Simulated assay, not measured.
Amino acid sequence: MKDIREILTLSEDYLAKHKVESPKVNAEWIISDSLKLKRLDLYLQYDRPLNENELSDIRQKLQRCAQHEPVQYICGSTNFYGLEIFVGPGVLIPRPETEYLIDHALKLIDEGQQLLDICTGSGCIPIAIQEQKNQTLKITASDLEENALAYAKRNIEHNKSNNIDLIQCDLFSGISQGIQFDLITSNPPYVSHNEIAEMGQDVLKHEPKSALFAEEDGMAIINEIAASAPDYMNTEAYIIMEIGAQQGKKCLSLFESFNYRNIELLQDYSSRDRIIRAQRPQ
Rank of each mutant, 00 (worst) to 15 (best):
E215Y: 03
P230K: 15
G88E: 11
E207M: 05
A214W: 04
F80I: 05
L115G: 12
P281Y: 10
R64D: 01
I225L: 13
E264S: 13
P188W: 09
N26H: 10
A141L: 04
M219K: 08
P126V: 07
H68S: 07
I102S: 11
Y269N: 01
E52C: 00
A278S: 12
V87K: 09
E145F: 11
Q72N: 10
L212C: 04
K24L: 05
Q67C: 08
I179K: 09
T78H: 01
I239N: 08
I179S: 03
H68K: 14
A214S: 14
N159F: 07
S173R: 04
Q130D: 14
M219R: 09
V25Y: 11
R64M: 01
S56H: 06
I74V: 08
K209V: 00
A66C: 06
D165K: 15
H68C: 02
E28C: 04
N79S: 12
P70W: 01
T78N: 00
L83E: 08
Q246K: 14
Q114C: 09
R48C: 05
M199S: 13
V87W: 06
L40K: 02
L183S: 12
G174Y: 06
S22I: 06
I102Y: 08
P70V: 02
Q72S: 13
I7H: 02
D41E: 13
L166T: 03
P23S: 07
A211C: 04
A141K: 10
A141N: 10
L265M: 01
Q279V: 04
G121W: 08
M199H: 14
G76R: 03
L204T: 13
D103M: 10
V87N: 06
M233K: 14
I184N: 04
V71R: 00
A16V: 01
E264T: 11
Y43L: 05
R274K: 10
R280S: 15
Y151W: 14
I129P: 11
Y238G: 10
Y238N: 15
S11A: 13
Q279I: 06
R274Y: 01
D57Y: 00
E224Y: 06
G178D: 13
E146W: 14
I263L: 03
Q177H: 14
P189W: 01
Y81F: 13
L40F: 00
H68A: 03
F258S: 05
E21K: 14
L15C: 06
N159H: 10
Q279P: 02
M1Y: 00
I4E: 03
Q201H: 15
R274V: 04
Q132F: 10
K61Y: 00
E97P: 03
D165T: 15
H158K: 08
K250Q: 11
I167E: 08
V91R: 13
S122H: 05
Q201V: 05
G248R: 03
P70G: 07
H158I: 00
S11T: 05
D143A: 11
K249L: 10
A27G: 06
P188I: 11
I164Y: 07
L15H: 05
N194K: 15
